[in-house]
């Protein structure tokens, strides 16, 4: 399907004193779920938004399947990459079905094909199509809204998925359920995914690999296990050992199990 490559990526916002993202290089392989982890303000969202060109580069290159994103048409590129944000941003004047159908309709799918896909996705995220299809977003719970946000992002079978703290605003129990579903969906669809969070536990539950960021730079790119065993910097060591290690190890194993079941 798809790979995403960052090569010396640097971003500076107009009027800013320093770079929001500075010389970042790493690769997100085909079908991989890579988590960008770091404290608020360290440049995770900015880096994510360079992929679908919502943020322009000051230097470096972002490639998707080897193609420089700046050489692609921005609108076409965005239609081929799913995007989920913490605030969800479901369109309030549209129904659930219309929200999910946005990208398929932008890409010119037929009415029948789109309707079939909408029902298929609603079932995939555990919402009964008959009950939810014609609802307005204002009548969804936080967890339901975020599920619909995910369905909307993957509706047109994107080649990659960008998720910016998607579960940050839902309560802990729903969050765990959503994380579990995401692992299942990503494994099922084999969609290359970049996932932003500042929540360590979430990162360890979801990630194939974790990119640890700190004030615009990458501290370490590694598998969760490796971050424990061979932290590259003092910062990473403090980060992974803050909180409950045992708990985190447990979830890493739980996740490996989930993956095994899905495959």
């Amino acid at each position: 399907m798809s790979s995403i490559t960052f090569d010396g990526v640097t971003v500076r916002y107009p009027g800013a004193e320093s770079d929001a993202v500075e010389n970042v290089s790493f690769e997100c392989d085909d079908g991989e779920l890579v988590v960008l982890l770091g404290p608020s303000g360290c440049g995770k969202s900015t880096l994510l938004r360079t992929v679908n060109r919502l943020v322009p580069l000051a230097a470096g290159r972002v490639r998707i399947d080897g193609n420089d994103v700046n050489a692609l048409d921005a609108v076409e590129l965005r239609r081929s990459v799913g995007y989920v944000i913490q605030a969800v941003g479901l369109f309030a004047h549209m129904t659930v079905a219309q929200n999910v159908a946005v990208v398929p309709s932008l890409r010119g799918w037929s009415r029948d094909e789109t309707a079939r896909r909408v029902d298929e996705l609603l079932r995939m995220i555990g919402l009964d199509p008959a009950a939810y299809r014609d609802r307005r977003p204002s009548r969804l719970s936080g967890g339901e809204a975020q599920r619909v946000g995910v369905a909307r992002a993957i509706a047109a079978r994107p080649r990659a998925l960008l998720m910016d703290e998607p579960f940050g605003a839902v309560d802990a129990i729903v969050r765990t359920a959503l994380q579990r579903e995401l692992v299942r969906i990503v494994a099922e669809l084999h969609t290359t995914t970049l996932f932003v969070t500042h929540d360590m536990d979430e990162a360890f539950r979801l990630a194939d690999r974790i990119v640890v960021m700190r004030s615009g730079r990458v501290e370490q790119v590694a598998r969760p296990q490796e971050l424990f065993e061979r932290p590259a910097t003092e910062y990473v060591r403090d980060l992974v050992h803050a909180g409950d290690d045992v708990y985190r190890r447990y979830f890493m194993r739980g996740r490996a199990l989930l993956r095994g079941l899905a495959e």
């Binding site: 938004r49 609108v75 965005r78 944000i85 969800v88 479901l90 309030a92 946005v102 990208v103």
Partner: peptide, 18 residues
């Protein structure tokens, strides 16, 4: 207009006019 909806609209690939 809710900025999140505008961000989502752009991010999903609507043109400025859309």
């Amino acid at each position: 207009v809710d900025p999140a909806q505008v961000d989502a609209a752009r991010g999903l690939g609507m043109s400025p006019l859309q």
